[in-house]
Design a protein around this nucleic acid. Structure first.
Lengths: 151, 151
DNA sequence: TATTGTTATACTCTATAACTATA
DNA sequence: TATAGTTATAGAGTATAACAATA
């Protein structure tokens, strides 16, 4: 008899009020966190972090590009790009070719190209997960709304 | 004489391709980061972190609520709630009142009530900043879309 | 047994400051 | 002078593991 009401709290059905639920910023933060958690889980099989995958995808799309340009495009500071690129280079996923005395162009290795294919599989699966969570119309309108506003 | 083309790169107008721009997940992450940066800046004047302000707002809306319930509502793990609540308590913004032998209800102090007013000023300013960035229709549809989906 | 709260610890991402070397 | 890249370090948020005390 009325078992549902007793599922969470035993005595009083003390309802929780969350004023943050009315805020767009709050939902933006929660939605982003949920998405990142989902995406990271997929990338863990490749032993890659999200920032690392974003750099690999950029190198694939812009072979020979300097890491400073990639960092600017992704909003990653040069101080954080340095160790990030070092890891990818040490793992043999990217190669550095000198452009001049101070800057080096980044290229994918053969191994890197294989890895990027798997990265895209995960990215596409994540977008589908988002689409499932949002329904098609909301997904499209959200993408259009957010596109080219931030950065 | 075509000065605009020379604003960014000197020699070649090497256009950067960013395939991530087509992804909703990417924009969600960037938008959330931009919003958090904006909001944190406002809270720094109060010497409060975003997670701390979210707890204070919840205590204001639910006086006497246990920290475990607040953590659940906000998606903050109990291991992270403990030091968070301790800081707010040490600063005299909240008070703990024992509910039973193991749980304690949280309440705002007078000082805490004053601080929450300023928190709301910052939150409202942030929402207005978001609305300005997005235009009214997109803002409303975004809020409706994200509402009650995540968590 | 499950819940409340705590401590310790580690990881990801981001930020600033200071620095070297090159254009 | 400005840019490319690096190192060191700190902070904010989140995660797991292990634990004591209580319901």
């Amino acid at each position: 008899m009325n078992e549902k009401q007793n599922q969470k709290s035993k005595r009083t059905t003390m309802t929780i009020s969350n004023p943050l639920e009315n805020l767009l910023g709050y939902h933006l933060r929660r939605a982003s966190a949920a998405m990142i958690s989902q995406l990271s889980q997929g990338f863990s099989a490749l032993d890659l972090k999200i920032t690392e995958t974003s750099v690999l995808v950029m190198v694939e799309a812009n072979p020979g590009m300097k890491q400073s340009d990639i960092g600017r495009a992704l909003g990653i500071k040069s101080a954080n790009m340095a160790p990030l690129v070092a890891v990818l280079s040490d793992r043999g996923l990217i190669r550095k070719k000198p452009l001049d005395g101070r800057s080096q162009g980044l290229h994918l290795s053969e191994e890197g190209k294989k890895v990027v294919k798997k990265i895209w599989e995960n990215i596409n699966a994540n977008e589908e997960w988002l689409a499932r969570s949002l329904d098609k119309d909301s997904f499209d309108s959200l993408k259009k709304t957010l596109n080219n506003i931030w950065l």
